[in-house]
């Protein structure tokens, strides 16, 4: 039996909106709670990141439980970087038992990009194996083949990089993730709608939902930095130029404008099933984006 409300929405024709919240580095959850409260009714689900960019933080599952407590729909992000198959399975059992119904299965950024570079990179599994393992657990056995006393059930998501400069191997992996049980994809941030359209043309053959990743850029320098340091992000020069073209103090506004422009086009062209907004530490602006993109829910749940 699934705990996922999000899964139901995936079945509908609704244009879906998800966003993500990064947990704090420390025990003070107040800001995260604030963000949860701000966003829980405005989006269809909230991802809680799992040591994003390999920076140690409050755990994703802890954040998901808070979302749950505050009446939101959480998506648990699990990466393979920090836990072996025992630890991940245990976490999944906990998550299910506490009513968390959605899991985004990720390989995880490399240890080297984070703040604990000396740590042991685990990668006992990769994202495809993680998806498979969860499906195996759902069937009643753990990955070692031992019977589970009570099996979990999840709505499973994964990530895809539609703008990767070497797309073919990414598509192979996309196929494998679907075969392994992914029901929805939250893409890496997209900028270039031409390449996104090409990807959608390909993805259309599969019965999966695609949520276009939209990142909000706060400055040209941030875009530049992400290009150089954040895995899976490629901000085109035209966007960077556009950000540089406006005067100081209005850059974030420009970033929002760009994000809204993208969202509107995607929606108008009915390119995919929804969007996933990544505000990267500026969760507060997400409602503004939604408003500007005319995605405000009339009757929040």
């Amino acid at each position: 039996m699934t705990n996922s409300l999000f899964e139901e929405k995936l079945q509908s024709d609704e244009f879906l909106v998800t966003t993500e919240i990064g947990p704090p580095k420390g025990t003070d959850n107040s800001e995260m709670v604030e963000h949860i409260d701000l966003l829980k009714d405005k989006v269809d689900a909230i991802n809680i990141t799992d040591h994003q960019s390999s920076v140690m933080r409050f755990p994703s599952i802890g954040g998901c439980l808070l979302v749950k407590e505050h009446g939101g729909e959480p998506i648990l992000q699990i990466t393979c970087r920090d836990r072996n198959r025992l630890a991940i399975q245990a976490e999944l059992l906990l998550a299910y038992s506490r009513g968390i119904g959605n899991v985004l299965c990720l390989t995880g950024d490399s240890i080297d990009v984070g703040d604990h570079k000396e740590a042991k990179p685990v990668f006992d599994l990769d994202s495809v194996q993680l998806l498979r393992m969860i499906r195996t657990m759902e069937s009643g056995t753990d990955i070692g083949g031992n019977e589970l006393k009570g099996a979990p059930k999840f709505c499973l998501g994964a990530s895809v990089h539609p703008e990767a400069d070497f797309i073919e191997p990414q598509l192979i992996k996309f196929d494998k993730k679907i075969a392994a049980g992914a029901q929805f994809f939250q893409t890496q941030s997209i900028f270039d709608l031409d390449s996104f359209r090409r990807f959608i043309q390909y993805a259309a053959q599969f019965d999966v939902k695609i949520l276009a990743g939209i990142i909000v850029l706060a400055s040209a320098r941030m875009a530049q930095f992400m290009n150089n340091n954040v895995p899976g992000i490629m901000v085109p020069q035209a966007i960077i130029d556009e950000l540089s073209s406006v005067e100081k103090g209005k850059v974030l506004q420009k970033g929002i404008e760009i994000a809204v422009r993208l969202i509107k086009t995607i929606k108008e062209e009915n390119l995919c099933h929804g969007i996933h907004i990544m505000a990267v530490g500026r969760e507060r602006i997400v409602p503004d984006i939604l408003e500007a993109a005319e995605l405000v829910r009339v009757s929040p749940k």
Partner: peptide, 10 residues
């Protein structure tokens, strides 16, 4: 990362 099923998005 030593992963077995294809490249990551990085």
């Amino acid at each position: 990362k030593g992963i077995l099923n294809g490249p990551c998005a990085g």
